[in-house]
Amino acid sequence: MKNLFIAATLALSTPSLADTIIVQSTTSTKNSGFYDYLLPMIKKDTGIQVNVVAVGTGQAIKNARRCDGDVLLVHAKEAEEKFVADGYGEYRQDLMYNDFVIIGPDTDPADVAGASDVIDALQRIEQAGAKFASRGDDSGTHKKERALWQEAGIDPVEGSGQWYLETGSGMGATLNTGVGLSAYVLTDRATWITFANKQDAVIAFEGDPTLFNQYGVIPVSAEKCPSVNREGAEIFARWLLSETGQATIVSYKVDGKQLFFPNAN
């Protein structure tokens, strides 16, 4: 039995290099094609093979706590800082940002387009009884959305299953659901720009400074997780934060639009 597994391993594993790292990442960066653009350059510059596991931010942090990643690249600053404070991360650095937008049917039944700010927009959705599709998966986007509802003084969970629809899925799946049901959805702009199944949905609300979406990078602690590739993680993080890395982030465009804006110090 054991021999079989070993044989299978030999047959299938690519040679396991010391300079291979696993990045636990949010889906938005992966689905937007960001890594497809970035990783070949990192490989060329540093020789490091980066393997990206894309899950929601909440899941990514949990996986990293179990030592199943060398670097965390997510967007939920509070949770990230707690991760570092608990000793699981070496440090946390701002990497880049973009913003969240609310997408919805072009008929805009809740007249979100006329809202003064994002809080007003959410209140309009609730009052109009319009549908809203939520990630419901403890991801960075979900955390942001729940914070906004709270600020708006609305507990959407009371309407769960009626107008508030928690998909418990990734951004893409939630967008598919939202578009299919003519619901409003809070999404990061990068995912929306690259999302191909828009149908008659459009950006209904954008531009509120509150919708700022910060991405951070955290090498996983070698003290908590002796198995991590600390060196590889450091080289990867340094590259991203370097001038080359930051310039590369600027140069990534989809349909002529820049998706992420570097802001490492």
Binding site: T27, G170, M171, G172, A173, N176, A196, N197
Partner: peptide, 9 residues
């Protein structure tokens, strides 16, 4: 699954 989540149905 990935293409679905990217909306490339």
């Amino acid at each position: 699954a990935l293409e679905t989540s990217k909306g490339n149905l």
